[in-house]
């Protein structure tokens, strides 16, 4: 069954700005799905429409076969949303925020207390349940929003940049929590600007740009398309001139940092042999950028070029 099915979704804001230009998208039940795109691409508009926060101009949306136009309340009951911006009442306690949210979903007080305990423990916030939410740290606030979105046991969890602004340690622990939620059977749609996050967590991916879906495929097949790896080499000594090595593209980034583009069909051994011949000693090497980041940039740049020319 499809967790989400979107057809010909359009949104034109007052003033004529066309945020979505008839997108179609399918997300399978149980998937961990990445919805990526640059700022202003239309991701948040699409999420806003799915979650009934934004009125659509036209198109259809089905969540677990329930039509948003006909069964809006059923669709809402299936979805849990973690929005981009902190949007809970800063004067309420952590526990009250979850109890209220459960109440809006029609969950009885007794069951709501039970679900609140489970969700807060899962997000490691149980010992903070009586804390007024504005006193939480940034990472805790983000986890609170995930706990709140889970309190009614949604079948589809939408995470709109859930780790924005949190440090890498907390981000990684949040990844584990999100994996756990997905493993329990909840379908997850993730938008993020940390492409490493999408590559680590998601099995399928769509890239949206200028209101269009420019890519929609399996993460593995998308990454397989990347035919060049980019490395940064840390050199023992500075070099006066960048050597020319056939099959490789080299560029000096700083005094002792050399950028190298290595096509998939080229051997790294050959690169190092050629560098040795030129008396260049390499102390260490690392990937220049995240693999998905490179693909993302290629796709978005390509789409922007098309957009300008059309």
């Amino acid at each position: 069954m499809k967790a989400l099915s979107i057809r010909n979704l359009r949104k034109t804001y007052k003033g004529g700005f066309e945020a979505l230009k008839g997108i179609a998208l399918d997300v399978e039940e149980g998937d961990f799905f990445a919805l990526l795109g640059p700022n202003g691409a239309g991701k948040s508009t699409a999420i806003g429409i799915i979650c009934s926060l934004v009125n659509k101009t036209s198109g259809s949306i089905k969540v677990f076969d329930a039509d948003l136009n006909k069964d809006r309340e059923l669709v809402k009951s299936y979805i849990g949303l973690v929005p981009q911006e902190i949007n809970f009442n800063q004067f309420e306690t952590v526990e009250d925020i979850l109890l209220n949210q459960a109440g809006y979903y029609g969950i009885s007080r007794k069951k709501a207390k039970h679900r609140t305990e489970i969700c807060l423990k899962q997000m490691q916030l149980w010992d903070r349940r009586n804390t007024v939410s504005r006193r939480l740290s940034g990472g805790m606030k983000r986890r609170l929003m995930i706990a709140r979105a889970l309190v009614h046991s949604p079948r589809l969890l939408i995470l709109d940049e859930p780790t924005a602004g949190v440090d890498i340690e907390i981000r990684r622990s949040m990844w584990e929590q999100m994996r756990e939620v997905n493993a329990q059977g909840t379908t997850i749609i993730l938008t993020t600007h940390y492409l490493e996050e999408a590559e680590n967590l998601c099995r399928n991916i769509a890239i949206i740009d200028h209101g269009n879906i420019v890519e929609n495929s399996k993460m593995s097949s998308l990454l397989a398309r990347l035919n060049v790896d980019y490395f940064v080499l840390d050199l023992a000594e500075s070099i006066a001139m960048v050597p020319e090595i056939p099959g490789f593209s080299l560029e000096l980034e700083e005094d002792r940092l050399l950028n190298v583009a290595v096509p998939k069909d080229q051997s790294l051994n050959q690169l190092f042999q050629e560098l040795s011949k030129n008396n260049i000693q390499v102390l260490s090497m690392k990937n220049k950028s995240n693999r998905l980041e490179q693909l993302f940039m290629d796709l978005v740049t390509q789409n922007q070029t098309t957009h300008v020319h059309s």
Partner: peptide
């Protein structure tokens, strides 16, 4: 509720 955006808590829930 609008200003702090927690109106969204109610709007996303199945509350008529």
């Amino acid at each position: 509720t609008k200003f702090q955006k927690h109106i969204e808590e109610i709007l996303v829930a199945p509350v008529p």
